[in-house]
């Protein structure tokens, strides 16, 4: 059963009682919440295609979004994110309950999922080849990824490049894509059919709106692939599109410094990134035009299959 098949009453019941267990790639997340319209409406809309796990399924993360128990619930209502009953963040305004849930789940993965090497990267698949886009904030990773998945590329993840150390396979984690500020309008114009939730203004990252991945990407969340290309993207205004090969040693260092848990995994991470860089073609992409960037990346995907 998928979240979209659950009527509002039952969805509220689950959130308020045992929790809504949602399958997100390799993780099962149990979400609990009191009745917060700012959370339930976008959750119902944006999680529409995600699979609800059975009651007996073991959850990787037990999360809860609820008002803090203080007087602020009456004056300027707030919500807090809790994992296993502990709150790692300060409370947010209640109207930001949904983005808080999304950031909170990402936080759980970034700080707990050390069975994987976690690159801070978008990952997509084209023609059976995994393409990793490690990037720093502001380099246009999410916008590029959002555009690619609406041109037939399969989403693995927008935020976490999950690599299984024992065999180097890329693991899909097709979560919502948090579009920010100008990129919301850019993607609305680029793909008018894109399923985008409400604008949440005045967050710590400006305005955020979440993009639901195409249904096929969520359905294929169990299909892993092998990485073939690493592209370090950088969006800059008014630059010609260019894709240049990158020295492997540089690609190694950039991938390692960009990983969430490189130091924690130590030798395991070193060996995983070594294999990754050895087997992948490495490039640096500068772009300002999404269509041009996609055309250039199509060539990379085609070349590998020739």
């Amino acid at each position: 059963m998928r979240v979209g098949e659950l009527d509002l009453e039952h969805l509220q019941q689950r959130l308020a009682s045992t929790g809504l267990k949602v399958s997100m790639g390799p993780f099962t997340v149990s979400i609990r919440s009191t009745t917060l319209s700012g959370l339930i409406d976008p959750l119902r809309y944006l999680y529409h295609d995600y699979v609800i796990c059975g009651e007996s399924e073991i959850s990787d993360y037990h999360v809860r979004v609820a008002p803090p128990s203080n007087i602020r619930r009456w004056i300027h209502p707030q919500v807090q994110f809790l994992m296993d009953g502990n709150s790692p963040f300060r409370p947010f305004p209640a109207r930001l309950a949904f983005p808080l849930l999304e950031w909170g789940i990402n936080w759980c993965i970034a700080t707990r999922a050390h069975q994987f090497l976690l690159l801070h990267a978008a990952v997509v698949e084209r023609r059976g080849r995994g393409i990793i886009f490690p990037a720093w904030p502001g380099h246009g990773k999410t916008t590029l990824c959002a555009a690619l998945i609406h041109r037939g590329w399969r989403l693995f993840s927008d935020e976490f490049g999950l690599i299984r150390p024992r065999d180097g396979r890329l693991i899909p984690l097709p979560r919502l894509l948090p579009l920010k500020n100008e990129s919301i309008a850019v993607i609305r114009e680029f793909e008018p059919e894109a399923v985008i939730g409400p604008d949440f203004t005045k967050t710590r990252k400006g305005t955020v709106a979440h993009l639901r991945p195409p249904t096929g990407c969520i359905k294929r969340a169990g299909e892993t692939t092998q990485a073939a290309v690493i592209v370090f993207p950088r969006w800059q205004s008014d630059v010609p599109t260019s894709l240049e090969p990158m020295p492997k040693s540089q690609a190694f260092l950039m991938a390692a410094t960009n990983a969430f848990n490189y130091e924690m995994l130590g030798e395991t991470a070193f060996r995983a990134i070594t294999e990754l860089v050895k087997t992948c073609s490495c490039y640096r992409l500068s772009y300002s035009n999404l269509d041009e960037a996609i055309n250039v990346l199509e060539q990379v995907a085609i070349q590998g299959n020739e």
């Binding site: 492997k248 040693s249 260092l253 390692a256 490189y262 130590g266 070193f270 060996r271 050895k278």
Partner: peptide, 22 residues
């Protein structure tokens, strides 16, 4: 020490310290 090299550039993992050096 675990080594990997490309051309004339070397990356080294120092197991005991858990550090990577270029």
């Amino acid at each position: 020490l675990i080594w990997v090299s490309w051309d004339d550039e070397f990356i080294l993992f120092h197991s005991q310290a858990g550090k990577t050096h270029y």
